[in-house]
């Protein structure tokens, strides 16, 4: 039993990697090879698919757009969530528990329900097809999550820290920025990671709120798949490239990942 136990995570990792390998494999094949023979690795190795993506602005601008709204969203969500999380972790105030649950309900709202009203709302305020529109729309589910994570981390910091600082004559903003924020730096990192993650993977709202100027890469992929028939190699290459930013971000937070996934509440 004890000797067999490393097999379980090993098999699971194999299961995780197989579909990703298949995607990677396909991204280096020519369309003829994909549709013609069944091959476990590319026989005619080609970089053609990647070259197409990097030389065609309709493709590579998709990545730029996605990264732009994800970044704006992360900044807005975490900045707004910081003071709110502090309030929830330190004070009791009128309706605090109801407010916290109401925030969480927005994490639960089925995005499909809101797609059409969102389109109308953002068209009405003139933000349709801008990065800001998608970034603001994604705060709907990212702010509640960021508040939840940051509140967990802040509650782990003893209150004595705040009290000592006030006794020493620090004003609230000064204390908050100079002393408190550096103390929970790990928590902020984790919150940013989660905001990045959920904004990066979401497509339905991002697609609904954009047309040309701010179209995310994932939407470019769906349109290519339907319009120009079966360009599977190109699709696979674009898919592979969407994994890269995620992998990059995970690598940076790998030491906090375990604690972060517990939302600071272990």
């Amino acid at each position: 039993m004890r000797r067999l136990s490393p097999l379980v995570p090993a098999l699971y990792i194999l299961f995780v990697m197989l579909p990703i390998y298949w995607l990677l494999n396909m991204s280096f094949k020519t369309t003829n090879e994909i549709l013609g023979d069944f091959t476990l690795w590319p026989r005619e190795f080609t970089l053609e698919n990647y070259i197409t993506i990097f030389s065609d602005p309709t493709w590579y601008m998709g990545y730029v757009n996605s990264l732009a709204y994800v970044t704006i969203n992360t900044v807005i969500s975490v900045t707004a969530a910081l003071p709110a999380a502090y309030a929830f972790s330190r004070y009791r105030f009128l309706g605090d528990k109801h407010l916290f649950f109401w925030l969480l309900t927005n994490r639960m709202a089925p995005v499909a329900v809101f797609a059409l009203p969102f389109f109308q709302l953002y068209s009405a305020v003139g933000l349709f097809d801008t990065h800001l529109a998608v970034a603001l729309a994604h705060t709907l589910f990212n702010i509640p999550l960021a508040v939840w994570i940051l509140e967990g981390f802040m509650s782990g910091v003893p209150r004595q820290l705040d009290e000592t600082a006030y006794v020493d004559g620090y004003s609230f903003p000064h204390f908050f920025v100079r002393i408190f924020l550096p103390t929970i730096a790990a928590g902020i990192g984790v919150a940013c990671f989660f905001c990045f993650m959920f904004s990066w993977v979401e497509l339905l709202l991002a697609k609904t709120l954009t047309a040309v100027e701010a179209k995310p890469i994932a939407a470019t992929m769906t349109r290519t798949a339907s319009s120009s028939g079966y360009e599977l190699g190109l699709l696979a290459a674009a898919g592979t490239l969407t994994i890269v930013p995620g992998a990059f971000v995970i690598y940076f937070v790998r030491n906090y990942i375990a604690k972060g996934f517990a939302l600071g509440r272990v």
Partner: peptide
């Protein structure tokens, strides 16, 4: 383990669908 396992969580959801589509199609 942590990094490889976290990988699927950061793939855009329509790409997840596309990956499984081309992984499970009977011909390819």
């Amino acid at each position: 383990c942590l990094v490889t396992m976290a990988l699927p969580l950061l793939i855009p959801w329509n790409v997840v669908g596309a990956i499984w589509n081309i992984f499970a199609l009977p011909e390819i």
